[in-house]
Design a protein around this nucleic acid. Structure first.
Lengths: 187, 187
DNA sequence: GTCTATATTTCGATAGAC
DNA sequence: GTCTATCGAAATATAGAC
């Protein structure tokens, strides 16, 4: 049941946004009452938090591995593979990424809550740290940031534009495109 | 005064999000009461709508010009210049883009309102139409979409990472990076 | 685990004085 | 143009029966 609530909440948070979605909306679509939801989640915020943790789970391993690399050179070399992995993940978990893209301020305010994870656990902070590493040339860091934005932006903001393109083909086109970003500038 | 309200609203909508920002929050920061705001705006939504129109104004000319080009070839050729222009605009109007990126669902639901602009006026629809043009090869459209995502994503989501980079330098780095996306694939 | 019923709060919006 | 005061709606959350 907990899972069904999360599924419906995910749908509605994408359709209407987190704030415009009341617990009654979720309950009605499930055919239960509002109070039933409170048996599974103490607060409405906890539903959002759970969805947030799923994004963390998706990105954690890849990011930890990247951050464990000691030299800037090693990190730069590993970046293209990370982006390729990200493309797969966004395509495979479109809705989790979508709900984040469409409710950024709601998700960010989860951090205000004391129950939230420690700062070092936060995914965005980890990314920021990597992109701030002064040992990596600024030009390269800008390209890395662009690559991130390109993948997430293209596959979420305009996802419906390429809705009829098979996942495999879309992934290949994305990889080809973004590779020109992460690779060193052409002569 | 209307302008001061919009300035403060812009700040708060970025900091806390549109839904978590009450009219009392805005009024307090201005040193007035809630009722004073209602003299300048009929509804809270109208404040958001006004901010939305500012984004439209920024992008309209460039997009209209692009859409007026008749052939797909001409449109493809004009794209790199459009992206360069976008880089300048995002840097010059960071906050307007920021408030949109952080409150996507709120802005999208402005469309549900009958007072909203006609569908053909909507900026995102216009972009979608361009990116859906079947006369442009799919691979190129994917690259165009990536370029858009890269510019907006890199300059908003991670804006603070490059906060101490001068605007001019950042713009140049962005142009260099994204050019490899819009240009034809390398051999 | 789910229900009915209700408590509590907050917010958007209005009326009318100054 | 701004204020005080208040209305009414809607949402989160709780209490207690089944």
């Amino acid at each position: 049941m907990r899972e069904r609530i999360l599924d419906v909440a995910l749908e509605l948070f994408i359709e209407q946004g987190y704030d415009k979605t009341s617990l009654r909306d979720i309950a009605e679509r499930l055919g239960v009452t509002k109070a039933a939801i409170y048996y599974h989640f103490e607060r409405k915020e906890d539903i959002l938090l759970e969805l947030h943790l799923r994004l963390h789970a998706i990105g954690r391993d890849a990011l930890d591995e990247l951050e464990s690399l000691q030299t800037a050179e090693a990190q730069m070399a590993a970046w293209p593979a990370l982006i390729d992995g990200l493309i797969e993940q966004v395509i495979a978990n479109r809705e989790i990424f979508l709900v984040h893209v469409r409710n950024r301020s709601a998700f960010e305010q989860l951090g205000d809550d004391p129950r939230h994870l420690a700062e070092q656990d936060d995914l965005e902070d980890q990314v920021r740290r990597l992109l701030s590493n002064p040992d990596i040339p600024l030009a390269q860091r800008v390209r890395m940031t662009c690559a991130l934005g390109a993948v997430v932006g293209a596959l979420t903001s305009a996802s419906n534009v390429f809705a009829d393109v098979p996942d495999d083909e879309l992934a290949k086109l994305m990889r080809d495109a973004v590779r020109d970003l992460t690779a060193p500038p052409r002569p």
